[in-house]
């Protein structure tokens, strides 16, 4: 599944990094602790979080994640969006909480 397919399916907002919408999704990781993601997320994962600052993109880039979803109607800080554009890693948004959007992603990947 590509990021753009997930955007349609889960009705996500695309905040930034639309040049990476064709990134292939292989999994997901839900966490608000940056070292947890650094230590445990795999390349191609979608990171589901409430964090919305630039350091999220540093980790997303270093770990080669497919996209970031900000939960609970949050939106990225300006420098996070800028970095997302540079890295080609989409930053997406949802009104749902982490539990619900994680469930949607999990079911989509295991359908």
């Amino acid at each position: 599944m590509t990021v753009s397919e997930l955007v349609k399916k889960a009705e996500l907002t695309v905040f930034a990094g639309s040049n990476g919408l064709n990134n292939e999704i292989v999994g997901g990781y839900t966490s608000d602790l940056l070292s947890d993601v650094m230590g445990n997320a795999d390349a191609g994962c979608v990171w589901i979080t409430l964090q919305s600052h630039k350091n999220v993109m540093a980790i997303a880039s270093l770990k080669e994640l497919a996209a970031v979803i900000i939960v609970n109607s949050g939106s990225p800080e300006a420098d996070m969006s800028e970095q997302a554009e540079k890295e080609g890693i989409p930053v997406l948004g949802t009104t749902l909480g982490a539990f619900e959007i994680s469930g949607i992603l999990y079911n989509s990947l295991n359908a």
Binding site: D32, L33, S35, D36, M38, G39, Q51, V56
Partner: peptide, 14 residues
């Protein structure tokens, strides 16, 4: 910011 979870040094060690 999501740092300071006490996972950094253990992550390095592993």
């Amino acid at each position: 910011m999501g740092f300071g979870a006490g996972m950094g040094l253990p992550n390095i060690e592993s």
